[in-house]
Amino acid sequence: MQNETFLIRDYPQSERPRERFILNGPQSLSNHELLALVLGTGTKNEPVLQLANRLLSQFEGLRLLKDATLEELTSIKGIGKAKAIHILAAVEIGRRIANHTIDERYVVRSPEDGAKYLMNDMRFLPQEHFVCLYLNTKNQVIHRQTIFIGSLNASIVHPREVFKEAVRRSAASVIFAQIGK
């Protein structure tokens, strides 16, 4: 009996990984479907989902794949340098997110520090934005949130919106900024 292979286009629209990702979020996909999205395409003889499945089987899942080298990946049929680099880049992003520490948080020691933190992104906004910086006990920014986007020259904010997030984040202090034209 011949081994059947199904291309992504053979699946109903609602069962395709990219569409399910859009509709239901990344948590709705299996590991091999997420890996297939990173790979992008399969080969002439092997669809991307099958290639992703084979790759995970070869590395016994994500645990060993995270430690794979460029040489190990490119030694697998169907994985060239470009696909291997995509995989390694995705793994590195995941590693950096997992290793993100509190030490990398921006510290606000003065009004100038707060302004510097906000101004690069907000300098040229066409309308008023009311933004809050939520700080921990070491004055490190733990969260930044735009509470309200106003009109050309005004923004109306209710205190409950500001303090709801402060309580949720267990913020020790809050900096308020109204930025815009």
Rank of each mutant, 00 (worst) to 15 (best):
T69I: 04
L49M: 11
N45E: 06
A89R: 04
K81P: 01
R18Q: 10
R16I: 03
K44I: 10
G25W: 11
H32D: 08
G42F: 04
I97H: 12
L70S: 15
P47M: 14
N31E: 15
E46L: 14
Q50T: 02
F59N: 03
L35D: 00
E92W: 09
L34W: 10
V91N: 08
D103I: 05
E92G: 02
P17I: 06
T43H: 03
A98Y: 14
R20H: 03
L56G: 07
E71D: 05
N24T: 02
E104Q: 06
N99Y: 10
P47A: 15
A82K: 01
R18T: 06
G78L: 07
R54Y: 06
H100K: 05
L49N: 01
N99L: 13
R95Y: 12
L88A: 07
H32T: 08
I22R: 10
L70G: 15
Q27Y: 12
Q50G: 04
D67K: 14
A89V: 12
E92T: 07
H86M: 11
A52T: 00
I22S: 11
D67A: 15
G94T: 13
V38E: 10
N99G: 07
I102P: 08
K66C: 06
E60I: 12
N31R: 08
K81T: 15
H100Y: 11
L49W: 00
Q50D: 02
L88E: 04
R95Q: 13
S30W: 12
G40V: 04
A90C: 05
E71W: 01
G61I: 06
S28G: 08
P17Q: 13
E72W: 11
R18H: 06
R20N: 01
L62D: 10
E72N: 09
N24A: 09
K66R: 06
K66Y: 04
I76L: 15
H32E: 09
E33D: 08
D103R: 05
Q58I: 06
A52V: 05
T101M: 13
L65Y: 00
R20T: 00
N99C: 11
Q50Y: 02
L55D: 00
I76C: 09
Q58G: 00
L56H: 09
A98G: 13
I22H: 08
V48T: 03
R16W: 02
H100I: 04
K77V: 00
T74I: 11
V91T: 07
K83L: 11
T74P: 05
D67I: 09
R16L: 03
T74Y: 05
E104G: 03
I97K: 14
R54V: 09
V38R: 15
G78M: 02
I22T: 11
G80L: 12
G25M: 11
L29D: 01
L39Y: 07
L29Q: 00
L23F: 13
I85H: 07
T74W: 05
S30A: 13
G78Y: 04
E104N: 06
G42N: 02
K81N: 14
R16K: 03
A36W: 02
I79C: 06
I79T: 04
I93C: 09
S28E: 09
R16S: 03
A98F: 14
A36Y: 01
S57I: 08
K66H: 05
I79K: 09
G40I: 04
Q27A: 15
L70E: 15
E46I: 13
T43D: 13
S75N: 14
L73R: 00
L88I: 06
K77N: 12
V38L: 14
F59Q: 02
L39H: 08
K77W: 12
E104P: 03
